[in-house]
């Protein structure tokens, strides 16, 4: 049972991350695929903050499979989007 858990923990998945609006000024790209070995949204964010230092200073929400989630949500989907404040209309 414990080895089974260990295997799951080591299993990395590929996640597509989409960036929008002002966040693309920082990332210089709109989409990328990352290999992610963690469990929660905050772990993914830590990975991204290491990659893009100034991302941490920006205001944004996270969507998983097109639904807004919080930092403690488990990552289950393969598409994560970082959404800065909306400006429709």
């Amino acid at each position: 049972m414990s080895t089974h858990k260990l295997n799951i923990k080591l299993l990395k998945m590929n996640i597509t991350i989409k960036y929008f609006g002002q966040l693309t000024d920082i990332t210089q790209l709109e989409e990328e695929t990352l290999e992610f070995g963690g469990t929660y949204v905050y772990e993914l964010l830590e990975t991204l903050y290491r990659k893009y230092n100034t991302l941490k200073t920006k205001d944004f929400q996270v969507a998983q499979n097109q639904e807004l989630v919080n930092e403690n949500t488990k990552i289950t989907g393969q598409e994560i989007a970082l959404l800065p404040p909306f400006a429709g209309g």
Binding site: F20, G21, Q22, A63, A81, L83, P84, F86, A87, G88, G89
Partner: peptide
Amino acid sequence: IVEAIKADVPVFGK
């Protein structure tokens, strides 16, 4: 409807 669009829809404006 207009208020909901402004608040809930992920549209971005440069």
